[in-house]
Design a protein around this nucleic acid. Structure first.
Length: 427
DNA sequence: TCTGGGGTCCTAGGACCC
DNA sequence: TCTGGGGTCCTAGGACCC
């Protein structure tokens, strides 16, 4: 059996877990730059606030109700996530961390302290509540797709008390009968619309379609999904997820920026973040993409410039793979100079690293130099120092310390578990 | 009347996930 | 005034190889 444990309104709950006065209040969490709403507590959902809704559209609602607002605090969510995952490993040896707030468990043959999956699910919920003060729901099924579906039912159906077990053909048939096809794992809005054209709106209907028909409509992914609905596993547990194939860092500026020098500073900072991620998974990259663009929503002039749009990007293939920040900075800067145009208000500059290879990969060839081993070693030492003493304690001279493009984060909360100065006080 | 049978690599487009 | 930031996979078509 597969289990899926998923945090309820995870980001909101992470804030609540350290501040009990938030209990029962509507909470929203904002995207980077305080732009959109990316998480809502049940109370906020009840007020009609939509996922992804632009924050500014909710002003009227905020005047009418006492809504608590947080800028996104990824340090807090990341640390809360790893604490959640470590609790889950106590219940099953094989855990696949699927996203920041959910994990698949594989229970080969249940022989634990708990006589049934129902009991196991209840125990997981209680332990997570006791140790983390975090609400989760648990779904069990013979395939990952069915475990996902069970989890969804656990969340939507209050009578289930957060646990849903699909362990018999009868239970599965009953669960699929009314389950909307658009809520299935792997069916987005496009496929849902296509399926509706063929009068397929429930999972039960989808389970019965012919293989070649679904294969031609939704490719092999759709075929796998239908097999999983029938109870035949096609997706295995990935306990140690494969290394990323691309790594991207591209947060927007806090305000519109017209000048190259400031953008180049931001680029340096983004590149440092990006390279840290690259080295964290012990990879080298063989190509680097730099892109920048204006604010596509903005219709008004600013900084003495007319309102007009521009987007540019360039990909540079490196002579040899590397993960050295200093080495990559040279390419990033020349890429930026190639695509930068004067006379625009820019919203964002971004970096993407691709053609990733393992860290011990060394290209051999007559005309090919290897990476500069000294620079690789330097970057690795910088990472170690910064991990111990704090981000950017050691940084490139070209990286500004007080940037001119401050991230707009008006509603910052404390990082209770990752900053000494934010630690909770007990009285 | 009739025109082979294997491959690889790259890109663009279209889906999806959180 | 104000609209996020990461990722993955599959397919078709074109170009090339022998």
């Amino acid at each position: 059996m597969y289990g899926l444990v998923d945090g309820n309104n995870f980001y909101c709950s992470a804030h609540r877990s350290f501040d009990p006065t938030l209990e029962g209040k509507p909470i929203v969490v904002l995207s980077n730059r305080d732009g959109n709403i990316v998480a809502r507590s049940n109370e906020a959902k009840a007020l009609g606030i939509k996922m992804g809704q632009p924050f500014f559209e909710t002003r009227e609602l905020r005047e009418q109700h006492d809504i608590v607002v947080f800028s996104s605090a990824y340090e807090l969510y990341g640390d809360t996530s790893s604490r959640l995952m470590s609790v889950l490993t106590q219940f099953a040896p094989d855990v696949e961390v699927y996203s920041i707030d959910e994990a698949f468990l594989w229970i080969e043959e249940y022989r634990g302290t708990y006589p049934t999956y129902q009991d196991l699910g209840i125990a997981i919920r209680e332990k997570v509540d006791q140790w983390l003060r975090l609400p989760v729901c648990v779904g069990f099924g013979p395939t990952k797709t069915l475990a996902k579906l069970a989890n969804r039912l656990a969340k939507k159906t209050p009578e289930l008390n957060g646990v849903c077990v699909l362990d018999t053909p009868e239970a599965i048939t009953e669960a699929l009968a009314e389950f909307p096809v658009k809520d299935l794992w792997g069916v987005g809005s496009r496929y849902a619309a296509k399926l509706k054209q063929h009068d397929i709106t429930t999972a039960a209907q989808l389970r019965q379609v012919p293989d070649d028909w679904i294969n031609s409509l939704m490719t092999v992914n759709g075929l796998r999904m239908v097999h999983e609905l029938r109870g035949f596993p096609c997706k295995m547990l990935e306990v140690s997820p494969p290394a990323r194939k691309t790594i991207c860092t591209a947060p927007g500026f806090g305000k519109l920026i017209p000048d190259l020098a400031t953008i180049a500073d931001a680029l340096t900072t983004h590149l440092c973040r990006c390279c840290e991620k690259l080295r964290k998974q012990d990879s080298l990259c063989g190509a680097i993409t730099v892109f920048l663009h204006t604010d596509r929503f903005r219709k008004t002039p600013g900084n003495g410039l007319p309102s007009r749009q521009y987007a540019g990007s360039i990909t540079l293939t490196l002579p040899h793979p590397t993960n050295s920040t200093t080495e990559l900075l040279t390419y990033a800067e020349s890429g930026l100079k190639a695509i930068f145009r004067f006379g625009y208000n820019y919203l964002k500059v971004g970096i993407m690293l691709s053609d990733l290879v393992p860290g011990d990969y060394r290209q051999k060839g007559v005309f090919v130099d290897g990476p500069n081993e000294k620079l690789l070693a330097l970057s690795s030492v910088v990472d170690k120092v910064n991990r111990r003493y704090g981000q950017d304690k050691l940084r490139l001279a070209s990286q500004q310390y007080n940037p001119d493009w401050p991230m707009k984060q008006q509603y910052l909360s404390k990082r209770y578990t990752t900053r000494w100065e934010d630690i909770l006080e007990a009285k």
